[in-house]
Amino acid sequence: MRFIWLYSDRDAKIQEAVDLLNVGFSLTGISFRLDDIRRYQNAAWFRQIEDESGSELRFEMISMSRTRISGPSTLNVWTLGQSRTIGFAQFPWHYAAAPQTDGVVMQFNVVPGNNDAYRFGKSLIHEVGHWAGLYYTFDGGCDTSGGFVADTPAQVNSTGVFGGCDATDTCPGRPGEDPVGNYMNYSSDVCRDHFTWGQVDRMWAALAT
């Protein structure tokens, strides 16, 4: 899968982020190579796009200015100064209706070597998981399996970034403890280290569309 990174400052850091992304996806059969790095100087995009709610400005950045390049097999990543959220992604089933906004938007400094003890680069793995069709592990709460994937334990609330990596069970009436180590949780990067095989199957099925 091709990979285009837009709006950042250090090429080496970008490559480290892609390398870590590939580590996270190493057992899934999905891999990424960095094809291009492009830089755009636009203070409004960098400072004002905070999440999906800034749809008009986001559409201007991605679509009207044509910063997004190539087709559905290419992952575009835009890095911005957003502070309300680390990142967000468009689900693959929205591609047919909105191909111009397909991709991932990330906070520019959440990369390996940023000296953050809790968020040091695995958030890109998490957001690419969304881009490939995964929900949060806590989506669905205790009413269904985690993120609507059969082999992922149910979880009623997210594990917070400062919640530690110890086992907890917020859905004692369902099998398994909270998936603290799952990439689709909100737990610290210290904890997050895997997708379930059911999540892998879901990503392949979603990407095939």
Rank of each mutant, 00 (worst) to 15 (best):
R2G: 03
F3G: 05
I4T: 14
W5P: 06
S8C: 08
I14A: 11
Q15A: 14
A17E: 05
A17F: 01
V18C: 14
V18W: 01
D19E: 15
D19C: 05
L20F: 05
L21C: 07
G24A: 05
S31L: 00
S31D: 12
R33A: 10
R33N: 12
L34K: 09
D36W: 01
D36P: 00
R38S: 12
Y40E: 07
A43E: 14
F46Q: 14
R47C: 05
Q48A: 13
E50R: 13
S53K: 14
S53H: 13
L57T: 02
R58K: 06
M64P: 00
R66N: 14
R66K: 15
R66E: 15
R68Q: 05
G71Q: 13
G71L: 06
G71F: 06
G71K: 12
P72W: 07
S73A: 04
S73Y: 04
V77C: 11
V77P: 11
W78G: 01
W78H: 15
T79R: 11
L80R: 11
G81K: 13
S83G: 05
S83H: 07
I86R: 08
A89C: 08
A89H: 06
A89G: 08
Q90W: 12
P99S: 09
G103F: 09
M106P: 12
Q107L: 12
Q107W: 12
F108I: 04
V110K: 03
P112L: 12
G113Q: 04
N114F: 11
N114R: 07
Y118W: 08
K122D: 03
L124F: 13
I125Y: 07
H126T: 11
V128N: 07
G129V: 06
A132P: 01
L134S: 02
Y135I: 01
T137H: 03
D139M: 09
D139V: 03
G140A: 11
D143C: 00
D143Y: 06
T144C: 00
S145Y: 06
G147S: 01
F148A: 03
F148V: 00
V149R: 06
A150H: 12
A150E: 14
A150Q: 14
D151A: 07
T152I: 12
P153A: 11
P153F: 01
N157S: 13
S158E: 10
T159V: 15
T159L: 00
V161D: 01
V161I: 15
V161A: 00
G163Q: 03
G164K: 06
D166L: 09
A167C: 00
T168P: 00
D169E: 01
T170Y: 06
C171A: 12
P172Q: 13
P175H: 10
G176D: 05
N182Q: 05
M184H: 12
M184Q: 15
N185E: 15
V190H: 02
C191H: 10
R192P: 08
R192A: 10
R192E: 07
D193V: 10
H194A: 11
H194W: 01
F195A: 01
T196V: 02
W197N: 13
G198E: 02
G198S: 02
D201Q: 14
R202N: 07
R202C: 02
M203N: 07
M203A: 03
A206C: 10
A206H: 08
A206L: 03
A208L: 11
T209E: 07
T209P: 00
